[in-house]
Amino acid sequence: MAVDMIVEPKWVVQNFGNIRILDASWTFKPKADVAEYKAKYYNKFGVGMNELKNPEYLAEHINGAAHFNFDIAYYPSEDERFTLYTPEEFSSYVKRLGVFNGDHLVIYGRGKDGGMAAASRAYWTFRYYGYTTVSVLNGGIEAFKLAQGVVQSGESMISSGNYEVKSVDNNILAKMTDIPFGNLASIKYLDARSRKNSSEKFQSDIQIRRPRVFVARMQFTSQSEKFVLQRDSRRRLIVIKLLPPRESRSETLSSLAAESDFRLLPSASPLLVLESLPSCTMEESTSWLTRLHNTSTCESLCYYTRLLYLDVHTYILPFCMQL
């Protein structure tokens, strides 16, 4: 059955009894510790559904909607926040949401931009797993309420379904080997990062280039307390994603950088990019990174060796960095 990619709130209200609704609300939080998550929640969907509840969903959701919880539907890995499960594992989770094969799924989000970012991720996740009878609610729960849709609080009582992934659509996701780095003009690609202000011109300062110009040395997260830097004579680049409130935290890091042999490079919020000066020794780098970690300003911090000097306005984020 062919369905529209986007459905309007009025249509959802009118067809309420003929669709299965999923709430894809997700609250931003620091990436979970990979080892801890794997031990406690990986493929343990019952445990996750009991312990990883979303307060926004509990406070208000469309009547009868199950919560497609990003903290359960995906799992964190070293390189990704939302790593896809195997088809069998994903099927096991979605069955718990009361989804049956053949259901017309309507997915919605909430908040900024009508929650379309979260709803769209959930939508394409189902498409990847070969399920095409799925739509996104235009405008999210806010638009649904304006259309006189019924909402509720607490948890919906949901019986298990029989959803099962039949096959995956590998055309949905592009692999690194699929990207023609030598001829990027032959493809069309979009920068999907949020605009800081829709009225201002959005200029990307992070462009896709050949990833060979960087070699990852290590990843340093808030769960790490010790790390070792390899000795070499190359300059190093530190890429940091700041936690809110970003303006004050950026000022703190700028002050720290001024006291060290690092210099700030042009970058777009919420990223902060620093490069070590030739005079910066390994011991000084290690000491400064420790002080940086103690400020608790970063969600993720990666330390890299810069192998090739680029134009000052163009930087490459290594693909292993979690954004």
Results as ranks from 00 to 15, higher is better:
Val13Phe: 02
Ile19Trp: 04
Leu22Met: 06
Leu22His: 07
Ser25Arg: 10
Ser25Leu: 02
Phe28Gln: 08
Pro30Asp: 04
Ala32Gln: 14
Tyr37Ile: 09
Ala39Phe: 04
Lys40His: 15
Tyr41Trp: 09
Val47Tyr: 07
Val47Arg: 10
Val47His: 02
Leu52Trp: 03
Leu58Ala: 04
Glu60Pro: 03
His61Lys: 03
Ile62Phe: 05
Asn63Glu: 15
Ala65Trp: 06
Asp71Lys: 04
Ala73Asp: 04
Tyr74Cys: 06
Arg81Met: 09
Leu84Ile: 07
Val94Phe: 06
Lys95Asp: 10
Lys95Arg: 12
Gly98Asp: 07
Val99Asn: 04
Phe100Ile: 08
Asn101Trp: 09
Leu105Met: 09
Ile107Asn: 01
Gly109Arg: 06
Gly115Gln: 00
Ala117Leu: 06
Tyr123Met: 00
Arg127Leu: 08
Thr132Ser: 11
Thr133Ser: 14
Val134Tyr: 00
Gly139His: 02
Ile141Met: 15
Lys145His: 07
Ala147Tyr: 05
Val151Ala: 11
Val151Trp: 02
Ser153Val: 08
Gly154Cys: 05
Met157Gln: 12
Ile158Leu: 08
Ser159Leu: 15
Ser159Met: 13
Gly161Met: 10
Asn162Lys: 12
Tyr163Leu: 05
Asp169Ala: 07
Asp169Asn: 14
Lys175Gln: 12
Met176Ser: 06
Thr177Asp: 10
Asp178Met: 02
Ile179Thr: 06
Ile179Trp: 07
Pro180Met: 12
Gly182Pro: 03
Ile187Asn: 09
Lys188Leu: 14
Lys188Gln: 14
Tyr189Ser: 11
Tyr189Arg: 13
Ala192Pro: 05
Arg195Val: 11
Arg195Tyr: 05
Ser199Cys: 07
Lys201Trp: 06
Ile206Gln: 14
Arg212Tyr: 12
Val213Ser: 15
Phe214Trp: 07
Phe214Glu: 06
Val215Leu: 03
Val215Lys: 06
Ala216Pro: 11
Arg217Pro: 03
Met218Leu: 15
Gln219Met: 07
Gln223Thr: 08
Phe227Arg: 04
Val228Gly: 00
Val228Asn: 08
Ile238Pro: 02
Leu242Ile: 11
Leu242Gly: 10
Leu242Ser: 07
Pro244Arg: 11
Pro244Val: 12
Leu253Glu: 00
Leu253Arg: 00
Ser254Met: 09
Ser254Thr: 10
Leu256Met: 13
Pro270Lys: 03
Pro270Ser: 04
Leu274Pro: 05
Leu277Ala: 13
Pro278Arg: 11
Ser279His: 06
Thr281Gly: 13
Thr281Asn: 11
Met282Trp: 11
Glu283Asp: 12
Glu284Tyr: 01
Leu289Trp: 02
His293Glu: 04
Asn294Gly: 01
Thr297Lys: 04
Glu299Tyr: 07
Leu301Trp: 03
Tyr303Ser: 08
Tyr304Arg: 04
Tyr304Trp: 07
Arg306Pro: 01
Leu310Thr: 13
Ile316Ser: 09
Pro318Ile: 09
Gln322Met: 03
Leu323Trp: 08
